[in-house]
Nucleic acid binder design. Sequence first.
DNA 1: TGTCAAGTGCAATTCTGTTGCAGAAACCAG
DNA 2: CTGGTTTCTGCAACAGAATTGCACTTGACA
Lengths: 144, 144
Amino acid sequence: MSHHHEIVEALQQIGYRLTPQRMMILDAIASGDGHTSAEEIHEAVRAAYPYLDISTVYRTLGLLKALHLVSETDLGSGHAQYELLSKGLHHHLICRECGGILDVDNSFLNPLRQAIDQEHDFHAEIEHLAIFGMCNACNANLRG
Amino acid sequence: MSHHHEIVEALQQIGYRLTPQRMMILDAIASGDGHTSAEEIHEAVRAAYPYLDISTVYRTLGLLKALHLVSETDLGSGHAQYELLSKGLHHHLICRECGGILDVDNSFLNPLRQAIDQEHDFHAEIEHLAIFGMCNACNANLRG
DNA sequence: TGTCAAGTGCAATTCTGTTGCAGAAACCAG
DNA sequence: CTGGTTTCTGCAACAGAATTGCACTTGACA
């Protein structure tokens, strides 16, 4: 575990500084469940280091996004959620009725990727997808 | 054209009122290019009727969304964009490099829909999808 | 250890979207 | 056409996420 330290050191080699704040923010994202908001990251780090400012969280997330080290997803809740891309990639099915979230394996999207590549000459980078719909239970309830 | 008047009249039959504001907002969405933000709709209608408030735009969009008459998509710009669903459904490939947008036919997603339905008992409502990536031209340029 | 650019904390601000409320107006009945 | 009811609108205040300017701090490297 803690292989995200490699990420931080890689950052350093590209020319970015290795600050405690950045390490703690990466820790927080890595130890989260994969649906971590900027505010949650802020709270988590502040438990150990109360001076961390939310703007630093956003600036770090912006950096990690630009380098494709984390993915940003809006699950419809109005605030974005972040996830380490080095963890196993997966996507989400979100039920409009009960709000439940199911995980979908990344391999499900391979046929779509291939089709887009062949038909449109376009290399799709589908890092983290949120698909809305209705789960089976809610579907049954609405009809019963 | 202007077949969105049918939509407004359909609204009326479900019990909603036929107000000039709603008609003008639908006009604005329908005459847009399919990537119209709430603020753009507001501006467009205010050109003819300066008293329209932005909250009315949001309330109308919320209503149309709930009835699945318009789709809401976040193309990553931080503000949602709206499109009439009665227009032919399509999705977008957005190149991270040049910003170009390609349209993808809705049928491309059918295999994904079926797979999700079978494997996860989940009815996916993929109305308007934005997929980021790299187009062929930019891919070639970066390597050249 | 000293230098300096990158990074941080703080505070103020911007921006999108929401909400409470009073008045306006669409719809329906008569 | 008129009156009554309920929805809808405009206004203004508000909420919350994210951004920015600026002075101070600190990591990296000679």
